[in-house]
Design a protein around this nucleic acid. Structure first.
Lengths: 393, 393
DNA sequence: CCTGTTTGTGCAGTAACTGTACAAAGCTAC
DNA sequence: GTAGCTTTGTACAGTTACTGCACAAACAGG
């Protein structure tokens, strides 16, 4: 209903190369951009001059040569800029290097000792500095955070699941990493972005993503290729969608909220195992999922109940967003794999205007989606405006 | 969190002129585009050559001359293309001519006789042909429809409030208006777009719009300047957000849905006046609102109850969209004017991360928002790509 | 080695701006 | 009324980012 203006060809080219994993044949790219071969020559020349790409002319292993001249291979060059991605979760911090194309290397993980906010930020930034050390052409640092994050500056107004008050997380990190550009994003948002670009969400016009991690529930929408962030960056808090009016009371004052019914504690409660200590939740949930997969009746019943509630919540999100793809991350992906029928049935019967089965539901494909998404965030300037980022020569 | 590529200057210029009502000083436009005066000269030359604008050099009534040379006035030319906007509602059809800048002329309205779908479409298209007759440079026809509309082709999967089955409305209209480009959109979406561009939603990053018309409830979101349509165009059906778990049963199977509680029938029910005939609803609601304004207790109580439910529903929408502006159209705007405190309180206390009063709520400013929005839809190609639309010379 | 197919390249050309220097138009003060 | 100031429009010579065409290169099959 509302069209868009065409975007600069160079940016399109870099984005396509990135989405193809950093390697593509020249002919393939020409096809995707819909431009002449001479234009591609000009564009590749620009990028080669700036050290972003290298071209392999040997055409040795050209897959499909229909009798014609084999196409050159376009690769991300060694001299191309790289980013460092980091993830903060309830009990660990992770960091890795990621280049254009989305390939991750040097991944390190560390257990959080707990303690004050500044201690955690210190640990996180130390890990980042370790990974960033010696990286020659570091474009920036992207960080995935398990709390709402203000888009303008990375302020975290309420990191509930970390037990934190409002924290100017962006400022704290920039103080400690002052020589680099630091961008922060909510972990569910970033995982959704990663799935959209490199995983189960590829090609969706309107992607709804939902995931459970350690505690709580995160969600995101990628709409026409862009994260739906809202005015401040706090959009899509799916936790308090009502899925069962006769359900559990929620601290928010309502009952049967999606978060309460389908997060890890909700799943354990459904299996009659309330009161598991926070530290043990991840492993107990893993056991429960294994038991359900093995057919243990209590576990199966819990999965079924949570699956129904999940489907109900998804239907509400589908009605609001008119999604054409649903991706489930974390434990929700495993849960869906066990009983796809229950989730799909709820979505089909409760969403208006959409026939049952019309919306593909799939588990997330990326084990490190949050981390990869954080890299996407840091790579964004390169994708949007390659010329500006790659200072000439 | 995700930046955008800059758009072509010519398109930006046309859009700015449109948003300024079709008349602006040259200096003002230069300031808005952030370009040099010479660039503005080039751009205006292009548009003048193509007959879109005219320049008034007399500078007679220059408002602010700080001692310098007064700026020329840029106006939409008589030779500029025009569109015809039409609106289909439950009991009437309306049409008018609209030009760049959003000025409406030749508005005509006709009562619908009822009858089969094709009769209604006939009446609508006859009215459009009347208004379109003799228009010299007709760019296209935009139509606002009180039902979901598929963005790809204008198919209406369920025009519930018209009592219609699924109808290929776009095809039916294009058959009858084959010489023109016809675009269809949902009326709430289009009213929201109009309020965003010309009314109470100006400047919002994330606008939530909600309105009641004859029967039912419509909603829309304008996100970063663009309508949030979803994959097919069916996004933001706000009618079935739960606002009162102990509320009225809804045909959808749930209870206390937003639509059931706050649409015209809900308002009348709250005032103890169920069972008003469909034809009389509009006038009886008007009476009720007048009585509430005059302080009549039953009417006031009804307004208060509906206001609370409205606020609850808005809070849910705010939590999902992270809005920074709420515009209420139709009767909801009047209701808000009567008791702004009740609505604002509910929104403030029930939306996470946002302090009370942080989100400006305002009644719609445009009495013919749907119609104006339909014009926006038809004008869109001109705004997006002026060069392509204005065939040279 | 010739043919057919597909692909890369050199180069001249163009659309869409951009920057600078300068002229024009108004107001104010003398 | 004209000099001085401010702000604004204009002419014109670049520059950037492509675009189209003609041609050469690389491979497969006969």
């Amino acid at each position: 209903m509302v069209a868009v203006a065409q975007e600069p060809a160079l940016s399109q080219l870099v984005r396509n190369l990135h989405l193809l994993g950093g390697s593509a044949s020249r002919a393939e790219l020409t096809e995707l951009l819909g431009c002449r071969r001479s234009v591609m020559g000009y564009l590749l020349g620009e990028l080669t001059d700036r050290g972003l790409i290298a071209i392999d002319r040997t055409g040795g292993q050209a897959a499909t040569t229909d009798g014609g001249r084999p196409s050159h291979r376009v690769l991300v060059a060694d001299t191309a800029p790289t980013v460092v991605a980091a993830q903060l979760s309830a009990d660990t911090v992770t960091a890795a290097r990621v280049g254009l194309g989305g390939h991750m290397s040097g991944r390190v993980e560390r257990t959080l000792p707990g303690g004050a906010v500044t201690d955690t930020v210190d640990t996180l930034c130390e890990l980042i500095n370790e990974v960033a050390g010696g990286v020659p052409n570091l474009l920036g640092i992207g960080v995935a955070v398990p709390s709402p994050v203000r888009r303008s500056d990375g302020y975290a107004p309420a990191a509930l699941h970390l037990g934190w008050p409002a924290v100017p997380l962006g400022d704290l990190m920039r103080e400690r990493l002052s020589e680099h550009t630091v961008s922060l994003g909510n972990d569910a948002n970033l995982a959704a972005l990663a799935e959209y670009r490199h995983g189960a969400g590829r090609g969706a016009a309107q992607l709804v993503y939902l995931a459970t991690a350690h505690v709580g529930l995160g969600g995101a929408v990628v709409s026409e290729g862009r994260l739906f962030l809202g005015a401040r960056g706090y959009a899509i808090e799916p936790g308090h969608i009502t899925v069962d009016v006769a359900g559990q009371p929620c601290p928010c004052g309502s009952t049967g909220c999606l978060e309460i019914e389908v997060d890890h504690r909700g799943l354990l409660r459904a299996a009659g195992r309330s009161g598991v200590a926070l530290e043990a939740i991840t492993s107990v949930v893993a056991e429960l999922m294994a038991a359900a997969a093995a057919g243990e009746p209590t576990a199966v019943a819990a999965v079924e109940q949570v699956g129904r509630h999940l489907g109900t919540g998804l239907a509400t999100l589908v009605n609001i967003t008119d999604a054409d793809r649903i991706v489930l991350g974390g434990t929700l992906g495993g849960l869906y794999r066990l009983r796809p029928d229950i989730v799909a049935d709820q979505v089909g019967t409760r969403s208006f205007l959409v026939g049952a089965g019309a919306i593909p539901i799939m588990p997330g494909e990326l084990p490190d989606g949050e981390l990869l998404g954080a890299a996407e965030l840091a790579l964004q300037p390169l994708l949007d405006n390659p010329k500006q980022v790659l200072t000439t020569r």
